Amino acid sequence: MQTILGSGGAIGTPLAKELKAYTDKIRLVARKPVQVNGDDELMTADLTQSADVDRAVAGSEVVYLTVGLEYNIKIWRRDWPVIMQHVIDACLKHNARLVFLDNVYMYADTEIPHMTEHSTIAPPSKKGQVRAALHYTILQAIQQKGLQALIARSADFYGPAVKNGMLAITVEGEYKKGKKAYWQIDVNKVHTFTYTPDAAKGTAILGNTPDAFGQVWHLPTSAEKLTGKEFIEKVAAAMQVQPRYYILSRFMMGLMGLFIPIVREIKEMSYQYDRDYVFDSSKFEKRFNFKPTTYSAGIAARVRS
Protein backbone atom coordinates (compact mmCIF):
# COMPACT_ATOMS: atom_id res chain seq x y z
CA MET A 1 0.00 0.00 0.00
CA GLN A 2 1.27 3.47 -0.94
CA THR A 3 -0.61 6.41 0.55
CA ILE A 4 -0.91 10.04 -0.50
CA LEU A 5 -1.77 12.40 2.36
CA GLY A 6 -3.30 15.50 0.82
CA SER A 7 -4.31 13.80 -2.42
CA GLY A 8 -5.67 15.75 -5.34
CA GLY A 9 -4.23 19.04 -6.50
CA ALA A 10 -1.26 19.83 -8.70
CA ILE A 11 0.96 16.97 -7.51
CA GLY A 12 -1.32 14.55 -5.68
CA THR A 13 -3.39 13.68 -8.75
CA PRO A 14 -0.55 13.00 -11.22
CA LEU A 15 1.38 11.24 -8.43
CA ALA A 16 -1.50 8.81 -7.96
CA LYS A 17 -1.28 7.97 -11.66
CA GLU A 18 2.51 7.51 -11.52
CA LEU A 19 2.31 5.16 -8.54
CA LYS A 20 0.40 2.60 -10.62
CA ALA A 21 3.77 1.65 -12.11
CA TYR A 22 4.86 0.46 -8.65
CA THR A 23 1.77 -0.82 -6.83
CA ASP A 24 -1.86 -1.75 -7.36
CA LYS A 25 -2.75 -0.58 -3.86
CA ILE A 26 -3.03 3.20 -3.62
CA ARG A 27 -4.76 5.06 -0.82
CA LEU A 28 -5.85 8.67 -1.37
CA VAL A 29 -6.37 10.67 1.80
CA ALA A 30 -7.95 14.12 1.99
CA ARG A 31 -10.89 15.97 3.48
CA LYS A 32 -12.76 15.14 0.26
CA PRO A 33 -10.73 12.53 -1.65
CA VAL A 34 -11.54 11.94 -5.31
CA GLN A 35 -10.92 8.81 -7.37
CA VAL A 36 -7.97 9.06 -9.81
CA ASN A 37 -7.24 5.56 -11.10
CA GLY A 38 -10.67 4.02 -10.65
CA ASP A 39 -9.61 1.52 -8.03
CA ASP A 40 -7.95 3.75 -5.43
CA GLU A 41 -8.88 3.37 -1.78
CA LEU A 42 -10.41 6.67 -0.64
CA MET A 43 -10.15 7.81 2.95
CA THR A 44 -11.52 10.99 4.49
CA ALA A 45 -9.24 12.52 7.11
CA ASP A 46 -8.26 15.73 8.86
CA LEU A 47 -4.46 15.69 9.06
CA THR A 48 -4.47 17.95 12.11
CA GLN A 49 -6.09 15.07 14.04
CA SER A 50 -3.65 12.38 15.20
CA ALA A 51 -6.24 9.59 15.13
CA ASP A 52 -7.11 10.37 11.51
CA VAL A 53 -3.45 10.37 10.49
CA ASP A 54 -2.78 7.11 12.33
CA ARG A 55 -5.70 5.47 10.55
CA ALA A 56 -4.57 6.83 7.18
CA VAL A 57 -0.98 5.62 7.55
CA ALA A 58 -1.78 2.16 8.98
CA GLY A 59 -0.84 -0.59 6.52
CA SER A 60 1.21 1.74 4.29
CA GLU A 61 4.70 0.96 3.04
CA VAL A 62 5.31 4.45 1.64
CA VAL A 63 3.53 7.67 2.64
CA TYR A 64 3.65 10.82 0.51
CA LEU A 65 2.87 14.08 2.32
CA THR A 66 1.76 16.43 -0.47
CA VAL A 67 -0.85 18.49 1.35
CA GLY A 68 -1.14 22.16 0.50
CA LEU A 69 -2.39 24.48 3.22
CA GLU A 70 -4.07 27.81 2.64
CA TYR A 71 -1.44 30.43 1.77
CA ASN A 72 -1.67 32.20 5.10
CA ILE A 73 1.16 32.49 7.63
CA LYS A 74 -1.17 32.13 10.62
CA ILE A 75 -2.51 28.84 9.29
CA TRP A 76 0.98 27.62 8.39
CA ARG A 77 2.27 28.34 11.89
CA ARG A 78 -0.74 26.70 13.49
CA ASP A 79 -1.15 23.60 11.35
CA TRP A 80 2.14 22.61 9.72
CA PRO A 81 4.02 21.60 12.90
CA VAL A 82 1.00 19.62 14.11
CA ILE A 83 0.52 17.80 10.80
CA MET A 84 4.21 16.96 10.47
CA GLN A 85 4.44 15.54 13.99
CA HIS A 86 1.31 13.43 13.49
CA VAL A 87 2.69 12.05 10.22
CA ILE A 88 6.11 11.28 11.66
CA ASP A 89 4.59 9.56 14.70
CA ALA A 90 2.30 7.45 12.51
CA CYS A 91 5.10 6.49 10.10
CA LEU A 92 7.31 5.40 13.00
CA LYS A 93 4.47 3.41 14.58
CA HIS A 94 3.54 1.62 11.35
CA ASN A 95 7.08 1.34 9.94
CA ALA A 96 6.23 3.36 6.85
CA ARG A 97 8.69 5.35 4.75
CA LEU A 98 7.91 9.07 4.41
CA VAL A 99 8.30 11.25 1.32
CA PHE A 100 7.74 14.94 2.05
CA LEU A 101 7.01 17.26 -0.87
CA ASP A 102 8.68 20.58 0.00
CA ASN A 103 9.44 23.95 -1.57
CA VAL A 104 12.50 26.26 -1.46
CA TYR A 105 11.32 28.86 1.04
CA MET A 106 13.83 27.76 3.68
CA TYR A 107 16.88 28.68 1.60
CA ALA A 108 18.82 31.87 2.31
CA ASP A 109 18.05 34.69 -0.10
CA THR A 110 21.70 34.64 -1.21
CA GLU A 111 21.20 31.06 -2.44
CA ILE A 112 18.28 31.84 -4.76
CA PRO A 113 20.46 32.47 -7.87
CA HIS A 114 21.64 28.82 -7.73
CA MET A 115 19.78 26.48 -5.41
CA THR A 116 21.05 22.95 -4.77
CA GLU A 117 20.34 20.35 -2.11
CA HIS A 118 23.29 21.79 -0.17
CA SER A 119 22.11 25.40 -0.17
CA THR A 120 22.26 27.21 3.17
CA ILE A 121 19.07 27.15 5.20
CA ALA A 122 18.52 30.67 6.52
CA PRO A 123 15.05 31.84 5.44
CA PRO A 124 14.40 35.59 5.21
CA SER A 125 10.61 35.15 5.38
CA LYS A 126 8.10 34.02 7.99
CA LYS A 127 6.81 31.26 5.71
CA GLY A 128 10.38 30.17 5.11
CA GLN A 129 10.91 29.86 8.85
CA VAL A 130 7.97 27.46 9.04
CA ARG A 131 9.41 25.36 6.22
CA ALA A 132 12.87 25.33 7.81
CA ALA A 133 11.37 24.04 11.06
CA LEU A 134 9.70 21.18 9.16
CA HIS A 135 13.04 20.33 7.53
CA TYR A 136 14.76 20.08 10.90
CA THR A 137 11.88 18.12 12.43
CA ILE A 138 12.25 15.45 9.76
CA LEU A 139 16.04 15.33 10.03
CA GLN A 140 15.82 14.98 13.79
CA ALA A 141 13.37 12.09 13.45
CA ILE A 142 15.70 10.41 10.95
CA GLN A 143 18.77 10.83 13.14
CA GLN A 144 17.27 10.18 16.57
CA LYS A 145 14.26 7.93 15.99
CA GLY A 146 15.19 5.93 12.91
CA LEU A 147 12.52 7.41 10.64
CA GLN A 148 12.95 6.43 7.00
CA ALA A 149 12.24 9.65 5.14
CA LEU A 150 13.33 11.87 2.30
CA ILE A 151 12.56 15.45 1.30
CA ALA A 152 11.66 16.15 -2.32
CA ARG A 153 11.84 19.85 -3.18
CA SER A 154 10.38 21.71 -6.11
CA ALA A 155 10.61 25.17 -7.60
CA ASP A 156 7.41 27.10 -8.37
CA PHE A 157 4.86 24.86 -10.11
CA TYR A 158 3.42 25.10 -13.59
CA GLY A 159 1.58 22.52 -15.65
CA PRO A 160 -1.84 21.00 -16.35
CA ALA A 161 -4.44 21.53 -13.61
CA VAL A 162 -2.21 23.97 -11.69
CA LYS A 163 -4.54 26.64 -10.34
CA ASN A 164 -2.37 28.53 -7.86
CA GLY A 165 0.99 28.71 -9.67
CA MET A 166 2.36 32.14 -10.49
CA LEU A 167 2.32 31.56 -14.26
CA ALA A 168 -1.27 30.37 -14.05
CA ILE A 169 -2.40 33.34 -11.98
CA THR A 170 -0.35 36.28 -13.19
CA VAL A 171 0.08 35.45 -16.87
CA GLU A 172 -2.29 32.84 -18.31
CA GLY A 173 -5.13 33.76 -15.97
CA GLU A 174 -4.93 37.44 -16.83
CA TYR A 175 -4.79 36.76 -20.56
CA LYS A 176 -7.91 34.61 -20.27
CA LYS A 177 -9.66 37.63 -18.75
CA GLY A 178 -8.51 39.80 -21.64
CA LYS A 179 -6.18 41.73 -19.34
CA LYS A 180 -2.46 42.40 -19.25
CA ALA A 181 -0.23 39.86 -17.55
CA TYR A 182 1.87 41.03 -14.62
CA TRP A 183 5.21 40.02 -13.15
CA GLN A 184 6.67 40.74 -9.76
CA ILE A 185 9.53 43.23 -9.31
CA ASP A 186 11.84 42.56 -12.31
CA VAL A 187 10.79 40.93 -15.57
CA ASN A 188 14.40 40.63 -16.72
CA LYS A 189 15.51 38.21 -14.01
CA VAL A 190 15.73 34.47 -14.63
CA HIS A 191 13.07 32.35 -12.94
CA THR A 192 12.76 28.57 -12.74
CA PHE A 193 9.50 26.62 -12.80
CA THR A 194 8.98 22.89 -12.19
CA TYR A 195 6.61 21.06 -14.53
CA THR A 196 4.13 19.16 -12.35
CA PRO A 197 4.05 15.90 -14.37
CA ASP A 198 7.86 15.75 -14.02
CA ALA A 199 7.60 16.49 -10.29
CA ALA A 200 5.01 13.74 -9.83
CA LYS A 201 7.06 11.20 -11.76
CA GLY A 202 10.17 12.19 -9.81
CA THR A 203 8.36 11.87 -6.48
CA ALA A 204 7.14 8.39 -7.38
CA ILE A 205 10.64 7.33 -8.44
CA LEU A 206 12.13 8.56 -5.16
CA GLY A 207 9.48 6.90 -3.04
CA ASN A 208 10.26 3.58 -4.68
CA THR A 209 14.06 3.85 -4.49
CA PRO A 210 15.17 2.59 -1.06
CA ASP A 211 18.64 4.16 -1.19
CA ALA A 212 17.14 7.60 -1.93
CA PHE A 213 15.90 7.89 1.65
CA GLY A 214 17.76 9.90 4.25
CA GLN A 215 18.47 12.62 1.67
CA VAL A 216 17.14 15.87 0.21
CA TRP A 217 16.36 15.78 -3.52
CA HIS A 218 15.47 18.51 -5.99
CA LEU A 219 12.75 17.25 -8.31
CA PRO A 220 13.50 17.28 -12.07
CA THR A 221 13.28 20.78 -13.50
CA SER A 222 14.40 22.25 -16.81
CA ALA A 223 17.84 23.87 -16.71
CA GLU A 224 16.79 26.44 -19.34
CA LYS A 225 17.33 29.95 -18.04
CA LEU A 226 14.37 32.06 -19.10
CA THR A 227 13.54 35.51 -17.82
CA GLY A 228 10.10 36.61 -16.74
CA LYS A 229 9.72 38.46 -20.04
CA GLU A 230 10.54 35.31 -21.99
CA PHE A 231 8.00 33.29 -20.01
CA ILE A 232 5.35 35.90 -20.70
CA GLU A 233 6.18 35.80 -24.41
CA LYS A 234 6.04 31.99 -24.52
CA VAL A 235 2.67 31.84 -22.76
CA ALA A 236 1.27 34.62 -24.95
CA ALA A 237 2.44 32.84 -28.11
CA ALA A 238 0.88 29.56 -26.97
CA MET A 239 -2.38 31.38 -26.22
CA GLN A 240 -2.16 33.42 -29.43
CA VAL A 241 -2.43 36.77 -27.67
CA GLN A 242 -0.20 39.83 -27.53
CA PRO A 243 2.47 39.63 -24.77
CA ARG A 244 1.23 42.66 -22.86
CA TYR A 245 2.28 42.98 -19.23
CA TYR A 246 3.03 45.36 -16.37
CA ILE A 247 5.32 45.14 -13.34
CA LEU A 248 3.90 44.61 -9.87
CA SER A 249 6.26 46.59 -7.63
CA ARG A 250 6.64 46.21 -3.88
CA PHE A 251 4.93 49.58 -3.45
CA MET A 252 1.94 48.34 -5.46
CA MET A 253 1.92 45.12 -3.41
CA GLY A 254 1.80 47.15 -0.24
CA LEU A 255 -1.23 49.11 -1.44
CA MET A 256 -3.06 46.10 -2.87
CA GLY A 257 -2.28 44.06 0.24
CA LEU A 258 -4.45 46.40 2.28
CA PHE A 259 -7.47 45.02 0.42
CA ILE A 260 -6.36 41.68 -1.10
CA PRO A 261 -5.12 39.12 1.47
CA ILE A 262 -3.20 36.93 -0.99
CA VAL A 263 -1.15 39.92 -2.19
CA ARG A 264 -0.28 40.69 1.42
CA GLU A 265 0.88 37.09 1.81
CA ILE A 266 3.09 37.00 -1.31
CA LYS A 267 4.81 40.31 -0.64
CA GLU A 268 7.33 38.79 1.79
CA MET A 269 8.35 36.31 -0.93
CA SER A 270 9.03 39.00 -3.53
CA TYR A 271 12.80 38.70 -2.97
CA GLN A 272 12.56 35.61 -5.19
CA TYR A 273 11.80 37.92 -8.11
CA ASP A 274 14.33 40.73 -7.61
CA ARG A 275 17.24 38.40 -8.50
CA ASP A 276 17.81 35.35 -10.66
CA TYR A 277 16.01 32.26 -9.28
CA VAL A 278 17.70 29.08 -10.50
CA PHE A 279 16.72 25.63 -9.22
CA ASP A 280 19.33 22.94 -9.88
CA SER A 281 18.03 19.36 -10.17
CA SER A 282 21.19 17.84 -11.67
CA LYS A 283 21.57 15.43 -8.72
CA PHE A 284 18.26 13.76 -9.57
CA GLU A 285 18.81 13.88 -13.33
CA LYS A 286 22.20 12.16 -13.09
CA ARG A 287 21.06 9.56 -10.55
CA PHE A 288 17.97 8.52 -12.54
CA ASN A 289 19.02 9.49 -16.08
CA PHE A 290 16.00 11.81 -16.30
CA LYS A 291 15.52 14.58 -18.86
CA PRO A 292 13.06 17.25 -17.67
CA THR A 293 10.35 18.58 -19.97
CA THR A 294 11.29 21.73 -21.87
CA TYR A 295 9.42 24.95 -21.13
CA SER A 296 8.06 25.13 -24.69
CA ALA A 297 6.55 21.66 -24.39
CA GLY A 298 5.31 22.22 -20.84
CA ILE A 299 3.66 25.56 -21.59
CA ALA A 300 2.01 24.14 -24.70
CA ALA A 301 0.59 21.25 -22.67
CA ARG A 302 -0.57 23.63 -19.95
CA VAL A 303 -2.41 25.87 -22.40
CA ARG A 304 -4.08 22.86 -24.07
CA SER A 305 -5.29 21.46 -20.74
Rank of each mutant, 00 (worst) to 15 (best):
S7W: 08
T13N: 10
A21C: 00
T23P: 00
D24P: 00
R27H: 04
L28E: 10
K32I: 05
V34F: 00
V34K: 15
N37D: 03
G38D: 01
L42H: 09
M43Q: 14
A45H: 02
D46S: 13
G68R: 09
L69T: 01
N72Q: 11
I73S: 13
R78T: 01
W80A: 08
V82C: 09
H86F: 05
V87A: 06
I88W: 06
D89V: 01
D89R: 03
N95D: 15
A96N: 03
L98Y: 07
D102L: 07
M106D: 03
M106S: 14
M106K: 13
Y107C: 12
E111T: 05
I112M: 15
H114L: 14
H114R: 05
T116A: 09
S119Y: 11
G128V: 09
R131N: 00
L134Q: 11
L134K: 01
Y136I: 00
Q140S: 15
Q140G: 14
Q144A: 13
Q148T: 14
Q148L: 11
Q148H: 09
I151P: 02
R153F: 02
S154M: 10
D156F: 05
F157G: 01
Y158M: 06
P160D: 11
M166R: 01
A168H: 02
A168M: 03
I169H: 02
I169W: 00
G173M: 04
Y175G: 09
Y182S: 14
Q184W: 09
H191T: 02
T194E: 00
D198F: 07
D198A: 12
A199V: 10
T203R: 04
P220W: 10
S222W: 03
A223K: 08
E224W: 01
L226I: 07
L226Q: 06
G228V: 04
K229M: 12
F231E: 05
E233M: 01
A236D: 03
A237D: 05
A238Q: 05
M239C: 08
Q240D: 15
V241F: 04
R244E: 14
I247R: 04
S249R: 06
M253E: 14
L255H: 00
I260Y: 04
P261N: 10
I262R: 03
I262V: 15
I266N: 02
R275A: 14
D276Q: 08
Y277G: 01
D280V: 05
S282A: 14
F284C: 12
F284Y: 14
E285R: 11
E285P: 00
K286N: 15
F288R: 10
F288H: 07
T293C: 12
A297T: 12
I299S: 02
A301W: 01
